[in-house]
Amino acid sequence: MRVVKAYQYLTENKREFILSKQLIRSGASIGANLAEASGAISTADFSAKVSIAYKECLETKYWLSLLKDTGYIAEKTFNSIHADADEIGKILFSILKTTRLSDN
């Protein structure tokens, strides 16, 4: 939800359309892949979808950094959203480790 609100802010207030589009694509993809993972037909399928979500989280953090470095979002806003993305990334990585260990 924060990525959607950030996208709205960036497009409406900052008139920034390129980086913000990348941000919303990668950010929304995290949730979409987790929704797919919930309907996985195997552990391998589940792990693959969570892995994609994790990588999309890393990409989202990259776009946030770029938006901060180019002055489109303030440091405080960046720190807050980036911390949330970092926490999500840690959770996803933990799920991946647990899932892959249970396969062995």
Score class of each variant (00 low, 15 high):
residue 77 T to L: 13
residue 53 A to W: 00
residue 27 G to I: 01
residue 11 T to I: 15
residue 3 V to I: 15
residue 7 Y to H: 14
residue 18 I to R: 12
residue 68 K to D: 01
residue 93 F to G: 09
residue 96 L to F: 06
residue 36 E to R: 08
residue 31 G to A: 05
residue 75 E to L: 13
residue 97 K to L: 13
residue 95 I to T: 14
residue 6 A to W: 00
residue 17 F to S: 06
residue 16 E to Q: 15
residue 80 S to C: 07
residue 54 Y to W: 05
residue 44 A to F: 03
residue 15 R to N: 14
residue 45 D to Y: 09
residue 100 R to I: 08
residue 31 G to L: 05
residue 94 S to T: 14
residue 100 R to K: 15
residue 22 Q to W: 05
residue 90 K to W: 02
residue 55 K to Q: 12
residue 31 G to C: 04
residue 55 K to V: 04
residue 83 A to Q: 15
residue 43 T to M: 06
residue 96 L to T: 00
residue 96 L to S: 03
residue 78 F to G: 03
residue 63 W to N: 04
residue 90 K to L: 09
residue 3 V to A: 09
residue 28 A to K: 09
residue 39 G to A: 10
residue 54 Y to E: 12
residue 44 A to D: 10
residue 38 S to N: 15
residue 33 N to Q: 07
residue 47 S to R: 09
residue 96 L to W: 03
residue 103 D to M: 15
residue 87 E to M: 09
residue 33 N to S: 08
residue 100 R to W: 05
residue 33 N to I: 11
residue 63 W to V: 06
residue 93 F to P: 00
residue 39 G to F: 12
residue 74 A to S: 12
residue 101 L to E: 13
residue 47 S to H: 02
residue 24 I to G: 01
residue 98 T to A: 14
residue 76 K to N: 10
residue 26 S to C: 13
residue 104 N to F: 08
residue 50 V to S: 00
residue 27 G to A: 08
residue 49 K to D: 01
residue 31 G to E: 08
residue 51 S to N: 15
residue 84 D to H: 10
residue 51 S to W: 04
residue 1 M to L: 06
residue 99 T to V: 08
residue 83 A to T: 12
residue 62 Y to D: 08
residue 49 K to N: 13
residue 46 F to A: 02
